[in-house]
Write a protein that binds this DNA or RNA. Structure first.
Lengths: 343, 343
DNA sequence: GTTGGCACTCACGCTCAGCGAGTGCCAAGT
DNA sequence: ACTTGGCACTCGCTGAGCGTGAGTGCCAAC
């Protein structure tokens, strides 16, 4: 009983099951693959695979279905990321090129990914903590309120209103604010958010003693704002693809929809992906830490502008998923969106 | 056969059906309501109601179910918006008070509405076209690119990168930009976007002939940006509530999820609501222009900061819905979110 | 216009048998 | 030691048949 053939059988089972979504038996396996052996041999192999916990039979007299472990082995050793055709690559690039701003890039990316994979696509907004400051702007909002607008290198813009002890909207306030603006930007531009916060620490010393108090309080608020753990945004698309699969299989979509609404969960999903060294990370069924997502798999990767990886994106679907093509799509989309963001 | 009693029967049918989600027959109706007449009489009334198209029988020997027209009549004449308890109102207010910025307000609002109604909540971002300019900021992004940041009264911030024919990042460019910034804001602040665009038309004339070209092109781009039809953002929550209802009823959630992904559709849904004069608009089943949403109802209303109504929010659910309480929730949430935004 | 009575209609749930895909095991072959 | 054909067996699925009961429509009497 050759090890090699047994794995070939596993591969065939996974492929057939993914395509037909029905448990696959020894006979139908022979019809669709040239294994060069008889049905009985295949049956023996299947029994061995079941023994190893790689496949399982839903009922006594039904075919076999891959287990999570079976999919895992398949992904790790039995398949390679299916290359995309130049035409597909061109279509992706062209579609993403059309975006006009960051929101549009993100929106187009998730939709594209959802329609390519026909699954739920998830994408994290370019992370702020790993971005660098492009510009910081101050806008007086009234006698004691000041809006701080932070623009980072990925094009993302964040605003925040802070309280100031003195009036900055009067004309001398305006002048002072202009000076603060210039100095803050001279110091912070190009730095990461945390670094920028550090650089600003001693800024107040450069000002007139009279203004120092005011500047110090503004800078303090700004530092807080820069360091503060920011809400990371997540966008999704293709949730209706869940309905398609939901009808034929034991994937009750309720819990999945609930998980998808919890953006914290999604962020963790994309976040833990980063810990793996592979370019594209795959988490299968129970490998997934969240109840409700235990019969789904997540295929994700990182993307970023230039050499900086700033956030994650991926797709979520039933464990019975075409991993090679899904992985190819995720990888390709990540590559192209990174290219767009780098410009 | 009194008209009055017939309507009482309709009301009872709607209430029972909403509660039990099972077709209601003459007998079970008598058990649950004191109508003071016999089953036979109720049957006669039901036959009449069916004749009028207000109720229908799924099969020959089943109870009756309200039709869209039946619900319509119920909403228009047989029910009133159920008042909320002070405790509920307080909880709403308290939950929304906790929001730290506009994104957070919107996020909390949809989630709140979804959990109150246990349905899908939809909320449009405060519309830009009906907002007023609070501040316009210019940030040089390189030799020939300028980022325009627009802050409106609802706190929403929009950015846009425009191409400029001359370099504005040099030091004299900075000075000029400061002047432009001051004049633009003096003219535009407090005005609606379209008005602001008009006010800016002649701004270039105030500048040195040497700079006039440059200013004109900047102003021109700005006008374009202000007038341009902007993408209106829509946020939703509670999609998992669809799964709950999806199991027991002929609401195939696939098409609904698809419709929910098309933000254009959602905007139209909230938009057409405005045409009705009522405070809370209800669109029932086929009154709804979109295929796939024909067995759902939309309960929506407008909200806004102060007296200005700037956008819509509402919920979407199966036609078999508790209209009075849903309407109450939508109205209450709209009231409170408006109050928050006004501050 | 209301009521009680009555025959009728179906959807639903149940059981039961037949079918067939698929299995496990065994004895024979290589 | 592995492979193969054969064979009995399992068991989920399907569809037919049947009883039940909620619900109806109609009618004659009040």
């Amino acid at each position: 009983m050759s090890e090699e053939r047994r794995l070939a059988v596993l591969r065939a089972i996974v492929q057939d099951y993914v395509q037909t979504s029905e448990p696959v038996g020894s006979k139908s396996l022979l019809d669709r693959h040239q294994l060069g052996v008889s049905a009985a041999t295949v049956r023996n192999d299947m029994a061995a695979l079941e023994e190893e916990g790689l496949i399982a039979a839903p009922h006594t007299s039904a075919g076999r279905v891959p287990t999570d472990a079976g999919y895992r082995l398949f992904v790790d050793r039995l398949s390679s990321v299916k290359p995309m055709t130049p035409a597909e690559r061109a279509a992706i690039a062209q579609f993403l090129e059309g975006a006009v701003d960051l929101d549009d890039v993100v929106d187009r990316t998730v939709r594209l990914l959802a329609s390519l994979t026909r699954q739920v696509a998830v994408m994290q907004y370019p992370s702020l903590t790993r971005s660098t400051v492009r510009h910081i702007e101050f806008v007086p909002m009234g006698p004691s309120r000041l809006m701080v607008v932070l623009i980072v290198n990925t094009g993302r813009v964040e605003q925040r209103v802070i309280e100031t002890p003195h009036d900055l909207s009067a004309s001398d306030g305006e002048a002072l604010l202009g000076l603060v603006r210039a100095k803050v930007n001279a110091r912070a531009a190009g730095q990461r958010l945390v670094e920028a916060a550090a650089s600003l620490a001693s800024l107040a010393d450069e000002f007139d003693p009279a203004d120092r108090d005011l500047v110090r309080s503004v800078v303090q608020s700004l530092e807080d704002a820069l360091v503060e753990e920011r809400e990371e945004r997540v966008v999704l698309a293709g949730t209706s693809n869940l309905a398609r699969v939901g009808t034929d299989f034991p994937l009750s979509i309720g819990p999945v929809l609930e998980a998808l609404e919890e953006h914290v969960v999604l962020l963790k999903l994309l976040g833990t992906a980063r810990e793996t060294s592979d370019a594209v990370s795959v988490r299968i069924g129970h490998e997934n830490p969240f109840a409700g997502l235990q019969s789904t798999s997540v295929v994700s990767t990182e993307y970023g502008s230039g050499s900086e990886l700033v956030a994650g994106l991926g797709v979520l679907g039933p464990t019975r998923m075409d991993y090679p093509t899904t992985m190819a799509s995720v990888r390709a989309v990540a590559t192209y969106v990174s290219r767009i963001l780098a410009q």
